Computed example of a mutant assay.
Amino acid sequence: MPAGRFKQWLHSKRYSESTITTYSEALKSFLVFYREKPVAEITNEDVIVYNNEYILKNNLSASYQNQIVNAIKLYFATIRETKIEIDKIHRPKRSKLLPNVLSKEEIKLILNTHSNIKHKTMLSLIYSCGLRCGELLALQPVHIDSKRNIVLIKNAKGKKDRIAPLSPKILEMLREYYTSFRPTTYLFEGQIKGQPYDARSLQLILKQALQKTGITKPVTLHWLRHSFATHLLESGTDLRYIQELLGHNSSKTTEIYTHVSTKSIQQIKSPFNDL
């Protein structure tokens, strides 16, 4: 199957545009590396050689290597004649990085720096509902259900809809914002009516807030989502509910927050105290 047909196949499986681009480019890099070899002759050993001779030699990341593996597995799953054993394609060992979390005090400082109601509402909504940046920008006014106090997050990552609770404070903020800006298609629109707000502009809003507060940590919008999950865990919310709120497929993804929650760690008495 040529790379173009692979792209069509991914489209038919309804993968997102960004995933299709990533996988297509990753696969192209692999197939170009073995351009002298018929696809049907490529083996698992060739994948190992590619990892060593291309990925490692060019200092490419483990996450990029993982994407290559995903692309190769999907591609060879669509080919009848192959020597590749899909289940035996080895992955790089994943680095176990903990999510970056801010304290409630730091979150409060960040959210209160902006006097602009639109900027303040956007950042507050990400934290208060644990949204991904793209999920916030895809919100429409109809997704805010003020009667049931919920936000409907449509077509989130993995094509899953989910709901998040809407705090009364956020609802108040949204009403004030709505009165001033009167959005039409999207809840948060850019310069052009009916067009969603730009992701880079939203990152800039966060950057400005950090400069005003003097917080020097390399905070990203995703840190607000991580902080939401960790603060929920620290206040005693069941991990299964947090999994639902974040839209995680696997509970293993959500469990990582137990490693950054300081609630139980703070109760441990250091032996240094007894010296």
Rank of each mutant, 00 (worst) to 15 (best):
A26D: 05
L210I: 10
G4N: 12
H119W: 11
F30H: 01
R91E: 04
W223M: 05
P168E: 10
L275K: 12
S18D: 11
S95Y: 13
H143W: 08
L102M: 07
S18P: 03
H90L: 14
Y127C: 02
I153H: 00
F33R: 07
D87S: 11
N44D: 09
E234L: 09
R91P: 01
F188S: 02
E41A: 14
Y54L: 04
L232N: 06
S24W: 10
Q8R: 14
Y178M: 12
S264L: 14
I215W: 07
N155I: 00
K252D: 14
N100H: 14
N273H: 13
K83V: 05
L275Y: 11
R5M: 09
I68Q: 03
L131C: 02
R80A: 10
T254W: 05
N66F: 03
E53H: 10
G214T: 08
D274W: 07
I79R: 13
P218T: 05
D274C: 03
P99D: 03
E53K: 11
V142G: 08
I110T: 04
F228M: 04
Y127F: 14
R132T: 02
L98S: 13
G134A: 13
S167P: 01
T254E: 08
D274H: 11
T121H: 05
N112I: 09
K37Q: 09
F33E: 13
A71L: 06
L139R: 02
I192S: 08
Q208R: 13
I144F: 08
G214R: 05
I86L: 14
K193Y: 05
F30D: 00
R182E: 14
H11F: 12
R200V: 11
I268W: 09
S261M: 08
Y178F: 14
K154D: 04
R200I: 12
T213P: 04
D46C: 13
I117P: 01
L123G: 01
E53M: 09
I68H: 06
I84R: 00
E25L: 13
P196Y: 05
N59I: 14
S227V: 09
R132S: 06
K96S: 13
G247W: 00
K217L: 11
P218F: 06
T22V: 11
G130C: 04
E135W: 00
F228L: 04
H143R: 07
P271L: 12
I79N: 09
K118L: 08
S251M: 14
K147E: 15
K83Y: 07
S227L: 02
L232R: 01
L224C: 03
E172S: 15
I153D: 00
M1E: 10
S61N: 07
P168M: 05
L166C: 06
I107N: 01
V32E: 13
P196G: 04
S24D: 08
R132F: 03
F188P: 00
E25K: 12
Y54G: 00
L166E: 04
I150C: 07
L109F: 11
E36G: 06
Q8S: 12
T258A: 15
R182D: 11
I68M: 12
L174Y: 07
D238P: 01
M122Y: 06
Q208D: 12
A77S: 15
G4H: 12
L123N: 00
F6H: 01
R175D: 15
H248V: 06
Y15W: 05
R225T: 04
Q191W: 13
F33M: 10
Q67R: 10
E189I: 03
L204D: 10
P168Q: 08
F181K: 07
